[in-house]
Structure formats: C-alpha cells, structure tokens
Design a protein around this nucleic acid. Sequence first.
DNA 1: GAGGCAAACTGATCTAGATCATTTCAGAAA
DNA 2: TTTCTGAAATGATCTAGATCAGTTTGCCTC
Lengths: 264, 264
Amino acid sequence: MDKTGFTHLLPNKDSCHDCFKKEQCLAKQLTISDVEGLSALISKNIKYRCGDYIYRQGDTSENIFIVKSGATKSLINSVEGNELVIGFHFAGEVLGFDAIDTNIHASSVLALDNSIICGFSRQLLDRLCTTDATFQKELIARFSHEIVRDYQLLILINKKTAEQRVAIFLLELLVRMGSSRGQVIHLNLVMSRADIASYLGLVPETVSRVLSKFERMGMLVVKKKKLQIVNDQLLVKYSNNQPLQKLPEPNAMEGNAIPLALLY
Amino acid sequence: MDKTGFTHLLPNKDSCHDCFKKEQCLAKQLTISDVEGLSALISKNIKYRCGDYIYRQGDTSENIFIVKSGATKSLINSVEGNELVIGFHFAGEVLGFDAIDTNIHASSVLALDNSIICGFSRQLLDRLCTTDATFQKELIARFSHEIVRDYQLLILINKKTAEQRVAIFLLELLVRMGSSRGQVIHLNLVMSRADIASYLGLVPETVSRVLSKFERMGMLVVKKKKLQIVNDQLLVKYSNNQPLQKLPEPNAMEGNAIPLALLY
DNA sequence: GAGGCAAACTGATCTAGATCATTTCAGAAA
DNA sequence: TTTCTGAAATGATCTAGATCAGTTTGCCTC
C-alpha cells in the first residue's frame, strides 16, 4: 500500500493551512492568508530518506528548513576528515541558521530517518523580516534559543564522566520526544552508537558499555535501537554523578565532633 | 596623572560620532544622526574594572553590550557550583545574545581588564530592528556568526589533544588580536591559566605544562601573562597534531616489501 | 534458511591527562 | 628591603576512557 514509506507521515494536504505542525512553525504567527500568498517561496513537505543530505557544509544557503517529521543530525567535517556530530533535530526545529551571515553552510545536515521538511527561501525570510515585525522577533528568538542550546552542549561535554554524558543525553531525549517522566518509556534511538558517541565526545565502545551498565543497574532495557527507560529517577541521579554505591560525603559528619585523628 | 586607569582607552569624546570603534559597531551602518537622535537609549563608554560583572547568569536582560576596549570572559555556573568559561570577548564584539529569547541571561560576563563597554537598550534594539532593515540584517548576521563560533569551540574541545587545544587557542588569539603572522609577536594573556584551562576543557596544570613544553621546543617564550610567539609555523603544526618528533607514518614503507617479521 | 555484512557488544591493555603535593615566582603591602 | 600571597610551574602517581582485538547479533539478499 504505502510503498513510499512517507504516507503515514502526511495526514494533511500539501498546504500550510492544514499543516498539523503549524503551531510549531517559524511562521506560526502569520495569518494563513499571508503565508498562502507567499506560497511560491515555500517548498512544502520535501521528502528525505534516511541518509539523504538536507544540505552540506560548504553549500550556498538557499533556504531555512523546518523539520516537520522524522529526525536529522548535523555534523561538521574536520580538516582531518573525521566527522563531528553537533546536534540532533526533531519536529518543529529550524535548520540552517549557521549560514545566514556568510551564506555558506558551516555544517551538514542529513536525515536519520524518513523525514518531511519544509523549506523557506532566503528571499522569503528577508521579505518577512522587513514586512512582519512579529515574524522577525520569532526568528531572532529562535537564534537566541539556538545559542543557549549550544551552551548546553558545551556544558554536557565539559568535565563530565561518560556515565553523566549518556544519562544527560537520554534525559534530554526524553524531554524532546515529549515523553512524560515517571513511567516506563519506550524510546526509539534513531541515531547510531557512533553518532551518540561523537555528539558526547566519547567513543562508540564507551557508549555501548555505559548502556550495558545502565541495563545491569536496572535503569533501562537496551535492545539495539529500542530503549525502554525503567527507572528515570536513577538516571537523574547518574546525570548528577551520584551513583547508588557512592559513599556518604565527608561532611555527613558535620554537627558531630570531628575526631582529631582524622585531622592529622 | 591617570588615576582612573581608563583615560588612555578613551581618545574620543562621549559620543558615537567620534567613536574610534564605530567601524566595528553593531550600528555602524546607521547614519550618525540616526544614532545621535536615539542617544538616550545608548549608554556610552561604561567603565568596568577587572573582575566587574557586566551581567550575571539569571539576570533580566536590559541591554545588548558592545566591547569598545579591554577584554571580558563569559562563563556558566553549573549546578554543582563550578564555573565553565565559554568565551573571551575583545573590542568590537557583542555581548548578551543569550538572553534575547528568554529575557534572562544564560551566562555571566565579567571584565578581565579595565574595559570600556557601550550598552544598547533592548528597547532601542527592537526599535532599530523594525525601522531599519540594514540594522536588522546586521544583527541577524552577528547572531549567525555567534552560532558558527560556538561550533568552532565544540570542534576545539572534541577529541583534540591538550597540545592541539592550546596551539589552536594561541593561534586564534593571534588572529583576534589582529597580529600579523610570521614575525615575533608579543601577546598579553589577559586571562589566567585556569580560565584558559576551563575554556579548553583541561586543567590548569596541563595548560602550564603544555606552555612549558612549547617554550622548550622554541615556539614561544612564556613569562607569566606575557607571551612571545617565536615560531608560529611550528604552532600551526602542533595545532594539526603534527609535532616535530613524530615518527614517519607506517605507510611510509609502501612500495617496499613489508618485512614479514613486522607482520607477525 | 544459509551466507554476508555492518552495527553493537565485550574483554584486555594502554595512555593522556587528571589529581595530588610541593616548589617557585612576581607583584603588593608594609 | 623584607614579607606575604596567590598564580604558576613542576614532579610523582593514578585512572577514566581510548584503543585494539575479537565475538555476537540482527538484518538483508538470494
């Protein structure tokens, strides 16, 4: 029936008016008629298969993209040739902010899954920015949001243990996938262990080992790309580097007299 | 004579018209009269002493700032209480982009030196954005630039050796300080070893050791905060992880028969 | 259902850089 | 000048995670 693999992702027609994601769209505050009038400048519902590039590092920037469904990763190819994953993007997120200044993409983005993505031409972007103050504000807000998100990744990478990184990553995924906490959650890891490792500044083997350990601790059940979070409270503990077996803090004694023997 | 320590930084009057940094200013493309008309919304030449905060993480955002002279660092305080340096900012750079979306600063910025900084009220920012298309474009371009810069820091941190990190950091400083390459350069490190270490995802001792090693290799002369770059070509080699003493690659043999003894 | 293949997992070993413990040094105060 | 103080340098040791070397697993294709 569905030979394309996309039909289930498209419950609506090829129009902004019926878009089931319009609440998350960059242009959400424009009236429908505004957008429809500029329809020629929007490429709606472009289909990407797993592994397809949305754009490549070095490409001239033609569009800003909005992920409607599916998932993508963005990466940077270093001079030495190895690639560094710098982000994962899900429905509602905007792609292409890296090229507004220079017109050249500083990163590549590719689909991790069959994905539907809309493109706003740069021309439309400029036009809306000058004619529509609300749109412009929304755009700048998203820029700012992106900068704060980058900070978070820096924090995640900096001086955290492998276990913390993986725990934080999983919790972040839970939030972004919109799952509520405190119950058994099924998570479909759309990215490979190597992708996660690159993103977290680790090596695939380490990610694998940490996931296995977390499984042994009863926090989750791992079955390749299918993850089942069983105990997210414990996951939170690990994300703060407070594993179960940790000894009480030295100052747990405070309030009692400290034996002299411990001071000398 | 100059008891304030600031006079030498201010060769011009307290006006945008005479500002010696106007070419680098966010509002550079506005005509002088435009800006002067909005003068009440610009706090010109605010003086900060070494250690003063320009703003703190969690503060409500009142202004966008432009560094006119001096230097600042931005940092994030983690939940555990330790601080992470995420950037250094010199003349011409804009501060405060992290709070445009939420109105709350996600990071703190403090002066590393006596610094002169101008503040644009958020109100002015909004006004210029709606009335002046060129200003708005410039602002968005700077946002995009900031995002790309964040990518660079991610690359710097990710999977690079301590020597690479320090070498890249020094080369980056050379560029940002505007020094031309290929000659002996005097560099005044305005930040501490601890700041550099935090920024590079290392520990102060490691930064110290690497600088000492670079000195032994004849690349630079270290005298606390005064650095003298003697051989920047070698620094470039180290930044690519190609130190001098490295053995020839294994495939240097290719073309010759490989001795069986090496295979077993 | 067999064969092929790439991702994921696991165990053994190694090492870059962290940690801990001093020492040195430069600038400020007295 | 001497003393004081905090940053920086240096040496010795330790360890988290990388690296290397397989093995296992799930998923194609025929």
